[in-house]
């Protein structure tokens, strides 16, 4: 184990390159999660559509994501998309979005179905269409209920973005392993990168809980 003063000094000195890696990690995570929310919502709606084909499509997607390792998904996206001249950044981001989308679909499906069915009936009885009631009445409530598990999924997504290192993204984890082997000091750099991840997870948790509080005004 490195001494604390060595760790601390290296932490300070390596700050500029870790900071760049952190920005890339944040970009990959934020963009992939944002896309994953839309993918998740889309497949959640397919799952509850009561249209058999659509349910089968959604289940198939979720089955594929759950049944294969994320690293395999990332490489498939990377090799598949690079043929279309799509950058590594987008390969990693889209692969992560594809992956997280399946888990987020399950989260949304669960919370949408947890909303009392009287809510849909009330909307319908007022002349609102199913789609309008879904958008104005059900989804806002379902989204609020989804926040805690979504926050959890965001954290997983943030940590999983480290796998983008394997397709050459110079994000946090790649910065750490590269600097570690260049300086023959892997342990120090791995401990440093662990601290970066802990800080990011801490901040993400805080953001989610602020959102939860904001949305709980009606309780």
């Amino acid at each position: 184990m490195p001494s604390f003063s060595h760790f601390f000094q290296t932490f300070i000195e390596s700050y500029p390159v870790f900071f760049k890696g952190m920005l890339l990690t944040l970009q990959v995570t934020a963009v992939s999660i944002l896309i994953a929310i839309f993918i998740g919502l889309f497949f959640a709606l397919l799952k509850i559509s009561k249209v058999k084909v659509l349910e089968v499509i959604a289940n198939f997607y979720i089955y594929i994501v759950r049944g294969t390792p994320l690293i395999v998904q990332i490489f498939i996206f990377y090799f598949g998309l690079s043929e279309m001249n799509i950058s590594g950044f987008w390969s990693a981001t889209l692969a992560l979005a594809f992956h997280n989308g399946a888990y987020i679909a399950e989260i949304f499906r669960g919370t949408i179905q947890s909303i009392d069915k009287g809510q849909m009936e009330a909307g319908r009885s007022l002349g609102m269409t199913t789609a309008l009631t879904m958008r104005r009445i059900i989804l806002p409530q379902a989204f609020r209920r989804a926040l805690p598990p979504l926050g959890n999924q965001f954290i997983i997504g943030l940590k999983d973005s480290s796998l983008a290192a394997f397709i050459g993204m110079y994000e946090l984890f790649n910065v750490a392993t590269t600097a570690g082997s260049n300086n023959f000091d892997s342990m120090t750099y791995l401990l440093i990168v662990a601290v970066y991840y802990l800080i990011l997870v801490f901040l993400l948790t805080a953001v989610v809980s602020v959102m939860e509080n904001k949305l709980s005004a009606s309780d």
Binding site: D116, G118, Q119, E121, A122, R124, S125, L126, G127, I137, Q141, S218
Partner: peptide, 15 residues
Amino acid sequence: RERVGMVFQHFNLFP
């Protein structure tokens, strides 16, 4: 349904 309003046992207000 716009012409036929309904009131439910469990209110079903939008919380």
